[in-house]
Design a protein around this nucleic acid. Sequence first.
DNA 1: CTGTTAGCGCGTTCAT
DNA 2: ATGAACGCGCTAACAG
Lengths: 348, 348
Amino acid sequence: MSDQPPRMSDPPQMSLADIAKASGVSLATASRALNDAYGVAASTRQRVLDIARQLDYVVSPDAARLAGGATRRVALVVPHIERWFFGELVSGLEHELSAAGLDVLLYHVGDAEDRAEFFAELPARRKVDAVVVLALPVGESERLRLELMGVTIVAAGGQSAAYPYVRIDDEVAARQAVDHLLRLGHTRIGMISAADPDQPGWPSLPGRSQGYYAALAAAGITLDERLVITVDWGGTSGADAMARLLSLPTPPTAVYAHSDEVALGAMRTIRRAGLRIPEDISIVGIDDHPLADLVDLTTVHQPVREQGITAARMLLGLLRGDTDVDQAVTLPTYLVPRRTTAAAPGRL
Amino acid sequence: MSDQPPRMSDPPQMSLADIAKASGVSLATASRALNDAYGVAASTRQRVLDIARQLDYVVSPDAARLAGGATRRVALVVPHIERWFFGELVSGLEHELSAAGLDVLLYHVGDAEDRAEFFAELPARRKVDAVVVLALPVGESERLRLELMGVTIVAAGGQSAAYPYVRIDDEVAARQAVDHLLRLGHTRIGMISAADPDQPGWPSLPGRSQGYYAALAAAGITLDERLVITVDWGGTSGADAMARLLSLPTPPTAVYAHSDEVALGAMRTIRRAGLRIPEDISIVGIDDHPLADLVDLTTVHQPVREQGITAARMLLGLLRGDTDVDQAVTLPTYLVPRRTTAAAPGRL
DNA sequence: CTGTTAGCGCGTTCAT
DNA sequence: ATGAACGCGCTAACAG
C-alpha cells in the first residue's frame, strides 16, 4: 500500500497549466521550458523542469501533436518479430528510444501486402515523427510517400533505398564463413541460401550469396550450380535443402548456410543420414544466434543489438537536427570457430 | 520543429470537416458514423463511411483522444522481447490488435530497474486505452500504479495479479514432461529450474517446479534435493547446471528442464562429457521452441502465438464492452516425444 | 435522428 | 524574457 517515501503522485490528470501555475509562470513559458526552446532564462527553465519532474508530469503527446508539435513517437516496421534477429534489434532500438523519452510503435509487416497497407496508412495520419525500417526493402514510391510527410527515416539491420542505415556487410560476413571453409581445404562447398518470401528463388540477403561466389572465384574454384540451393528461411527448409545436397552424385564436403537457423536444420539432416559433423561434412552459418553456441556451430558473429542501438542514436541525432551524424554505419562481423567445421576429409 | 528543409505546403491532410462536408452532414454526424455510434440512420452512416474510405480518410487518434475519445492504442509491456517466447506472443497480439485498427506501443522492461521505472513513471499514461502485461508478475504496489492509469488490463502468457488472463497451466505442462520420464522407468530425475532474474533462487515459473514435485510424489519417489538446480534462464546456465548434476555421486538418468533453451545447454554438457542422449541420459524441456524440432528434443508444446491472439481478442471484447468475454483462459499443452528421451538405462 | 457548441492540452504567433 | 490569445481535429453534451 505505502509507496516509496517521496514519490507520491497520483493526480491522473495534470496539465501544463498545473505545472505552469506551480512554477509561477505562464503556460507559454512552461511550454518553452519543457521543450528546451529559446528565450527562457536558465533559472526559469530549471525551476519549471524541477517542478515538472517532482509532479511526475509528462506532456500529452496527443495535445502536443495537435498543436503542431512533434508526436514523440517512432514507428518500428519489422517483418518477423518472432525471429531472434529482429527481437534483438527491437530490443536495442527500444532501449535507446525510450531512454530519450520517445514512444515506440510496433508495426509488424509480414508480406508485401501488409507492407503496402502500412505505407499507405501511416503517413496519412502523422502518427509518428520517424520510422525505423528493420531489414526491410523499401520501394521508391513508398519512400516518396514518407518523405512527403516529412518523417525521418532510418534503416536498421540492413540497407534500404537511400536512407541512413546501420547494418553489417553481408558479403564480408559470407566471405568470412566461406574463406574459413576454403582454408580448411574444402573445395566442394555447398550453399543453402535463404529466400525472400516475397520473391521466392531470390536470396533475401543477396550479399550473403555474392560473398560465396566471390570467395570461390578468388580461390579459383569453378562454381557448381547444383551445390547452391535456395529455400525459405527457417530450420525445416534448411533440413530439406541439405537432403537435396546429400542426394547429389558427389555431395559437398562442406556447407555454408545463410543463417544459423538454416544451418541447424541442415545439421539434423546430416546426422540423421548417419554422417558425422565435422568429420564427414563441415557446416558454417551466419548470425551467431545464441543457440549456435549451444550446438557448437561455427558461425560468423554479427552485433545485432548494437545495430539497433546505433540506429536509434542515429535517429535521435537526425531528429535533433544534428549536422554531423554519420548516416552510413557498417558494423564489423567476425568468425567464431566452433565444432562443426574441420579439415576436408582425406586431406589432413 | 526542425523538419526537413522544404516545408511541404501540399499536405493531403484532411479532417473530419472535409468528409462531413463531402457527405453533406454535420461534423457530429460524421463523427458518430465513423465511430459506429448509435443514432445514425443506416443510410447516412453508409454514405459517410463510403466517402471516408474513398477519400482515404482516417481519424486522428490524437485529436480523438484529446476530445475524450479512445486513443486506439494499446501498450504491450514485455520483459524480454529478444526471446522467442515473447516475440511470438507479441506477434500474435500485434496481428489481432492491428487488424482491429489499434496501434501497438511497445514498452520493454528488462530488469527490475526498468520495471520500477516503468511503474513509477507510467510512460504509457494517457497514451493508451489498454495495457497487456506479458508474462510479467505484477506486485500489489505495481498494480495500484497501473490502476491509476485507468485503463483496461490483460495478462498474456501468464497470470498476474487479478487481471483477465490467457496462459497455459505450467504445472500441467511440467507433469506432462516428468510423467513421460517416469513412464520410461526413470526414478532419478533431475530438474533444472529457470530462476526469476529479479529473485535469484526462485523459479520464475513456479508451476513448472510444482509439477515436478507433484509428479514425483504421485509416483512415490522421495525427493532428492541435490537433483534440483535453479539457474538463470538461458542455455549457458543450463549447461552449467548440467555440469553440477553430472558431478553428483549418483547423477540422474533423466533431466527435466524448465525450458527448451535450458535443455539445449544441458545437452551440450552431456555430450561433451562423452555421454549419449538418450542412451545414458534422457532430457526433456518445455515450450517446443522451433529449434527443439531441429535438435530432436523431446518437449511439451505450448501454443504461444495463440495465447497472444486469444489475449488480444479478450482485450478487444473488454474494450468493446462485451459482457460475455471469458476472462480466464488456459490453453492446452501436450507432450512432443522426440529423440532425447528413452527408457532408463538397464531397464529395457 | 441530426446539428451546434464547447472544450480536451498544448505549441505558437503576436504582443509586451 | 515572458504572457495572452488562438486553433490543431475531434468527441461530448446539449439542443432541435
